[in-house]
Design a protein around this nucleic acid. Structure first.
Lengths: 144, 144
DNA sequence: ATATTAAAAGACCTTTTGGTCTTTTAATAT
DNA sequence: ATATTAAAAGACCAAAAGGTCTTTTAATAT
């Protein structure tokens, strides 16, 4: 569904948010270990997320990653588009630019509703909502 | 949804099948032009499909690509799996190996039905069924 | 037989994705 | 002040995806 970078970003963000709920500010080493992602790569990805304004960080002792609680919830779609580009999972199944409702490719009629479901999924779910589910013990994040 | 190679393969296969219905055996140049794909790359992909037994070809004058009509219809899933590998669109949205119904990641409940729809889509649709839709004027293939 | 046609084979290249590692900067605690 | 801690910056590398091009092989038509 998503590429590796997006996967690590989503897992990392949700992990940070869960920890924030628990009153903890995790660092790169903890995050990468807990979400089972490559250490340096995860660091680079989190850095990018900070630079893009999705996440906050502080240096030095007691430092780590956290969210600005004043900001609105972060839909997955925002992150995915920031990482994979705006056209992610919005294209035609056959790769045709001209494909649309009036001019459907052979898969269009069946694929369009699926694409719409995906769009809904990433639009409605936010890092915060997923973190709450996780915190409530409903879901796993990793490291079972 | 699919990667480029798969897209070109699907478009090419459907195009060949449509032409076969029309009593024509197209060559690489025609196919690549009509499906709007890179010439040499398309050639290489068709070659692979022939080697994998999904498609037939003949060399020399009057040569080109065609299907063995005795073989059963070719589900898209077969092609996608041959090109992208068996685990295409079967994984967890979060990239977790341990994710399943009993042990769901935060996205699992919502993503699982979407994944199932995709599986149904590629299982039920075949190169032949799509070619028929196209031939009936219901769909576009490309080159509008 | 040979010239022509068209696919097969395979070398090669570029871009993107995924990943590693070292150095620098900034914060905090002593 | 300075030692320590931890993120930021950025150089570097490997694999995969995507794509180009030339040469070889096989079929057909003359």
């Amino acid at each position: 569904m998503f590429n590796k970078e997006t996967e690590y970003a989503l897992r990392g963000l949700v992990y940070v948010r869960v920890q924030q709920i628990l009153g903890h500010k995790p660092g790169i080493i903890e995050i990468a270990t807990e979400i089972d992602a490559p250490l340096f790569y995860t660091g680079k990805i989190l850095q990018r997320l900070v630079k893009m304004g999705f996440l906050m960080s502080s240096k030095g002792k007691g430092g780590g990653f956290y969210f600005d609680l004043l900001k609105p919830d972060l839909p997955l779609k925002t992150i995915v588009e920031a990482i994979e580009g705006g056209k992610a999972y919005s294209g035609c199944g056959f790769g045709l630019k001209q494909c649309n409702d009036d001019n459907p490719c052979p898969l269009h009629e069946q694929y369009a509703p699926i694409r719409a479901s995906i769009d809904k999924l990433v639009t409605l779910n936010t890092v915060q909502s997923l973190a709450l589910n996780y915190k409530n013990g409903e879901d796993i994040l990793l490291k079972l």
